[in-house]
Design a protein around this nucleic acid. Structure first.
Lengths: 201, 201
DNA sequence: AAATGAAATTATTGTAGTTATTTTCATGCT
DNA sequence: AGCATGAAAATAACTACAATAATTTCATTT
């Protein structure tokens, strides 16, 4: 009997999807909510939510929808990306073909999560700017730190009062307390790898 | 006499190089040394080192060499990369053509720093693996966290007991307490963007 | 089996007191 | 002049403990 039980011989289907519990917890934390806060928003008890997050109680679709709304995601968040990655790698790896997408309707901007969850000290995001696309003049005045590496294309970056032209292979780092904007002045798509610490979405 | 002495009329070269003080401090901190510790290693007084790091005292070349040795870098560390970037962007940007290189003689591996300093909560590194190149079986058993994004090529990654095949566009994250190794099984160069938190070199 | 409220447990935060680290500075040195 | 030193003064980092908040458990209800 050479086979160990944790290594089954046949394993046709990819793997079981990740239960939603941890996902809810991660998302709640990154939103800075407590169980109480989420309970208030959803009109649900703290004890119940605690059990849901630890997969002791199952959630029905309507309930999950409520929770999703309170956490400001669409319900399909919980079935995208890493949520349906093979169990033996979902805590570590985010495959290129299986990322969670954050759409920014109207702007030519897409962001895709490269981190499997929000529980670490930083988060990686792959950003794509269509020609001419720009981030709004959002002043992320939170605490924290941002890093970026331009994989392809051109980027015009403004940090506080200073403006920089960034080319492929250039990297940058700034405190997220500084107001910052960026836009793609080029004719090609610009691709940036962002690092955000602490994770925020 | 309109010209201030620190602004000469002709300024053909880019900008003034960064004084070594901050660089020494950053490097000392990332090594986990106190001024006392560095004083012991260099046989130099704490007060003096404090002044040097704040650019109150200048260092002579022989002294800088001592310090460099104590901090385990070659003296040219202090003149590479961001150290000679234009003053108005050196705290933020690391240009593609002006990175600090960490050579790993013998192995087909090169790392280049993408962070201007070590004072943040994370550090970005561009890693290059020649075909067949591998990291030693170093078990970075420190505390902390590592993230990676494969820009090009193939990578074979081992985290603890688990092995993964990584392709372009795949990302991964793991605690640096886990022993980890990687090698390039492909015929092309593999390029990885690493994120390390907290910074360590 | 899920949901609740309340008690029990566990984390988190705040606050002194302590120790370690860094800065300052008067003085000697080259 | 300006670098170097040691010792005092000022800061910063750590520790322990209490207070508070957050989470889990569980007996009970729906």
């Amino acid at each position: 009997m050479p086979n160990r039980p944790e290594m089954p011989i046949t394993d046709p289907q990819p793997e079981q999807a990740q239960p939603v519990g941890e996902q809810i917890r991660d998302l709640r934390k990154v939103r800075g909510l407590t169980l109480q806060g989420l309970a208030d928003k959803t009109g649900r008890s703290v004890g119940n939510l605690s059990q849901i997050e630890r997969n002791i109680s199952d959630v029905s679709i309507p309930v999950l929808k409520e929770i999703a709304e309170a956490l400001d995601v669409s319900i399909n968040w919980f079935f995208q990306g890493v949520a349906n990655a093979p169990a033996d790698e979902r805590d570590i790896i985010v495959r290129a073909d299986n990322r969670r997408r954050l759409e920014f309707a109207g702007t030519g901007m897409v962001e895709e999560l490269l981190s499997p969850n929000f529980s670490g000290t930083f988060e990686m995001i792959l950003g794509t700017f269509a020609p001419g696309a720009a981030t709004g003049s959002e002043n992320y005045s939170r605490t924290g730190e941002v890093g970026g590496y331009l994989i392809a294309g051109e980027l015009q970056l403004t940090i506080g009062e200073r403006a920089f032209s960034i080319g492929p292979g250039d990297a940058f780092t700034y405190p997220s307390t500084e107001p910052h904007r960026c836009w793609n002045p080029g004719a090609a798509v610009a691709t940036v790898l962002w690092v955000v610490a602490p994770p925020s979405y």
